[in-house]
Design a protein around this nucleic acid. Structure first.
Lengths: 146, 146
DNA sequence: AGCTAATTGCAATATTGTTGCATTTAGCCT
DNA sequence: AGGCTAAATGCAACAATATTGCAATTAGCT
């Protein structure tokens, strides 16, 4: 929810401005990654104008607060749908339809941290991107998965 | 090894050209992510010139063959050090010194795939980036990990 | 050595990202 | 409600990164 993000924003002492609300709304409505200029374009179709610099700065902020993430596969930004206190984000990207889902699993997360620890690496955050086929696309076109 | 990459390259019917060999060598020597222009700069200091377009195209190719990866954290490219047949790449990035290590673990990889499967997602590849502190930096400056 | 498709370099252009500074505004305080 | 101030935005200019079409070159064949 946008409301949740706004709460986090304010809890960290940041102002709730119109541009920030607009960017959050656009991200919320789109489950696919968007570039800063994508966001600007979407807003323009609604008669709202935001300078691209503002969008860049807003996205920076959201990423720092772990409210958004930049996807590796596309370079676009996506709003995190899950509480991020664990510092672990796991996205599944469908190669066919492009849909993205975010998942959390404390156990798996812990296992990954333990794994890293075995190599002497102290993990702060981790980010995983799975690419493959969502259940719908897999059912429709199983040959794609070959 | 560069030799291994060359073998994969050729096995896929691509030519082994001087530019490709140079890019592979530079990536191999650097354990940190490099941008296309970084690579161009490094080569220039050795009196070798490659057009940036060529470097972009070479990196595209290497990524498609899973011989290199683009890192999320920096946007730079890094050569994969491990056999990539499993389609699973796990990088640990030290927030302090920037060093990157790649790890493979079939079991953990399998667990991750199973996890996705529980949500009906059929995984083809996955890529994880851990950010934190390598053992050296953690030992030297444990307060950083707070 | 010669052939040919693949690859490279070049030039031009498009896209994406950054910086400094003047103007505006959210949130606070009367 | 009106005023204050630090934070945030917009603007302009610029810097860095990425893409495209096409002519010249070259790797890997016979």
């Amino acid at each position: 929810m946008v409301q949740d993000s706004i709460r986090v924003l304010q809890a960290h002492g940041h102002k709730l401005t119109k541009p920030r609300r607009l960017v959050l709304e656009v991200l919320e409505e789109n489950e696919k990654p968007l570039s800063p200029y994508d966001i600007q374009g979407i807003l323009r179709t609604r008669g709202k104008y935001l300078n691209h610099v503002t969008i860049y700065r807003t996205l920076d902020l959201l990423c720092n607060l772990n409210l958004a993430h930049r996807m590796l596969s596309s370079g676009g930004f996506i709003k995190c749908s899950l509480d991020s206190t664990e510092g672990c984000h796991r996205f599944m990207v469908c190669q066919n339809c492009g849909a993205i889902q975010e998942f959390a699993d404390k156990e798996l997360c812990q296992e990954e941290n333990d794994f890293a620890q075995n190599f002497g690496f102290h993990t702060e955050h981790h980010l995983s991107e799975f690419s493959g086929f969502c259940s719908q696309c897999y059912r429709k076109q199983p040959q794609l998965a070959e």
